[in-house]
């Protein structure tokens, strides 16, 4: 489904005239329908891997080969921006800890819109959006209000609802449970299990190792580049 080969990413900060290495020779593989967990210390580059797959970051070298429905086997680093826009809409989902919304868009509109974007009919989109909001325990009285006023947990659940409702083939989870209480975590876990059962491929970063237990097929451990030098 997804194979990363010798991925290298560094950040050059011009005003400091410095280059900071973030990823060095990362190679990994996720099979269709598999769940890969990425663990490691803060700053070891976990999110950088996910953001490179999603092309929010542009790595300097390596390949990320994705088996796309639309394009067949495609190297995400060579893909055009238009191809990435399409893949983000239809095949690759991303859930982060942060919610970024249009001003004055209600929770229901937000989730509905993400379905309309992929061509679902209006009536069906609204029905499915409501179902997703209900599933994540976002009370009906919140549906027609603006997410800016939501609590952290509510925002996060809304974020997850938006990504999951489209049922992407590959879902990237960047610490989606970071600020959730136990009950919400259970909800998220249920959804992830359901997605997995449907055959969705998942790559996730979780601080909560307990949460990952029994969920991941594989675990990839990241090490800070500076720690590696000490070991060597």
């Amino acid at each position: 489904m997804l194979t990363i080969h010798n991925l290298q990413k560094s950040f050059t900060i011009h005003h400091l005239q410095k280059t900071f290495p973030a990823l060095e020779n990362i190679s990994l593989h996720v099979k269709e329908g598999g769940f890969l967990g990425i663990v490691g210390k803060s700053g070891s580059g976990k999110s950088t891997i996910l953001k490179s797959i999603y092309r929010t970051y542009m790595p300097q070298a390596g390949n990320i080969i994705f088996h796309s429905d639309a394009y067949g086997e495609i190297d995400l680093l060579q893909a055009t921006t238009r191809q990435i826009v399409y893949l983000r809409k239809h095949e690759i989902g991303y859930v982060s800890q942060f919610l970024n919304v249009m001003p004055r868009t209600t929770a229901l509109e937000l989730v509905t819109q993400s379905l309309l974007d992929v061509g679902v009919e209006q009536q069906e989109a609204i029905a499915r959006a409501k179902q997703a909001l209900r599933h994540f325990d976002l009370e009906e009285k919140l549906w027609n209000s603006y997410p800016n006023n939501f609590s952290g947990g509510e925002k996060l659940r809304l974020n997850i609802a938006c990504a999951i409702v489209k049922e992407p083939r590959l879902l990237l989870l960047d610490e989606p449970t970071a600020s959730l209480d136990q009950a919400s975590k259970v909800k998220v876990r249920e959804s992830i299990e359901k997605l997995k059962a449907q055959g969705t491929t998942l790559i996730g970063i979780f601080h909560d190792l307990e949460f990952m237990e029994g969920l991941c097929d594989d675990v990839f451990t990241m090490m800070k580049i500076s720690d590696k030098e000490v070991l060597a």
Partner: peptide, 19 residues
């Protein structure tokens, strides 16, 4: 510089874009 909007904002390459 040109690219995906989130990439331009989160991983800007050019000195001016970074500023």
């Amino acid at each position: 510089e040109h690219g995906l909007t989130d990439q331009v904002l989160e991983d800007p390459q050019h000195e001016y874009t970074q500023q």
